[in-house]
């Protein structure tokens, strides 16, 4: 593999809250046009890690680089200005705003009418609808609809389209598929691939291995705040990844245990443990 400069790189990042160490010595890289899947069970430190990337938390020690240049974010705005965009699980956070209005929160397009500068609703709606349709979500065609009326997948798609529209270079997706059905999740995964095709560096947080396998180029598994594994696509099987996430061999053991039980008990699974 050629060593190109990573869009975003962490070197030996530690984060602790008071006496509690949440992240230990994390070193990670993500390149343009690459999807990094960040896997880990609940409480593994995924949220802290992405909040550190997004400028919400400052690392206790360690360094962050963008395009090889050392960066330090004092607040989320700094990270956003450098092109790091975070999309949260529920996508649009303003459920009672229209698509056009929420798309442009903080950067509203205006037009002049006499002495007044007024919010250009038409441009806002058209731009928002066009941006999301370019990602293949053609069902959104009215910028006056309220965000709260969109499906979970549509909201995610809109949020991703918004980030790309405003020049994001690193897209952090925080469990985008966790609350979605199979079909909605596949929509979102397709949008992740589209974002990758456009040259964005995508950091995809999930604990659904299937979803990660579908889009990931590069995988990192977090266990109790430490990087337990860091490997490329095709280097590990689905089962191996699941086991890693569960913190060892637990799930594989469980599988063989059930199988052997069924063999010796005429095909009946073991009774649930109490």
């Amino acid at each position: 593999m050629t060593e190109k400069t990573a869009v975003l790189e962490l070197r030996n990042v530690n984060k602790s809250f008071g006496p509690i160490d949440v992240l230990h010595d994390i070193s990670l890289k993500v390149n343009a046009g690459e999807v990094l899947c960040l896997l880990g069970d609940n409480g593994a430190g995924k949220s802290t890690l992405i909040k550190t990337l997004a400028g919400v938390h400052k690392p206790t020690s360690g360094e962050m680089f963008m395009d090889g240049e050392k960066v330090s974010f004092e607040r989320p705005k700094d990270a956003a200005d450098r092109g790091i965009a975070t999309v949260h699980q529920f996508g649009g956070t303003f459920p009672l705003m229209t698509i056009g209005r929420s798309f442009f929160v903080g950067v509203e397009p205006t037009k002049r009418i006499g002495p007044f500068r007024i919010f250009d609703r038409k441009t806002a709606n058209e731009t928002a609808v066009k941006a999301v349709q370019e990602f293949g979500i053609t069902r959104i065609d009215d910028g006056d609809r309220l965000i709260g009326g969109l499906s979970g997948g549509e909201r995610q798609s809109l949020a991703i389209a918004r980030a790309v529209h405003f020049g994001a270079r690193v897209l952090i997706l925080d469990e985008p598929t966790a609350a979605l059905g199979v079909k909605q999740a596949s929509h979102v995964l397709r949008i992740v691939l589209e974002a990758k095709k456009r040259g964005l560096a995508v950091i995809f947080i999930t604990h659904q291995v299937t979803h990660a396998m579908a889009v990931g180029d590069h995988f990192a598994v977090l266990i109790r705040g430490a990087l337990a594994a860091n490997f490329m696509r095709g280097e590990k099987s689905r089962e191996e990844i699941t086991d890693l996430m569960a913190g060892g061999e637990a799930l594989a053991d469980l599988d063989t245990e059930i199988e052997s039980h069924m063999e010796t008990h005429e095909g009946h699974p073991p009774p649930p443990a109490h």
Binding site: A80, F94, V105, G106
Partner: peptide, 28 residues
């Protein structure tokens, strides 16, 4: 009416009521 529905400040007011943290992160 002008402030809330016509100016960009109206959008800020709606966004603040929707989610203060996101509004702040959006630079409002």
């Amino acid at each position: 009416w002008f402030i809330l529905h016509q100016s960009r400040f109206g959008n800020w007011i709606f966004a603040m009521g929707g989610d203060k943290v996101s509004a702040r992160n959006a630079g409002i």
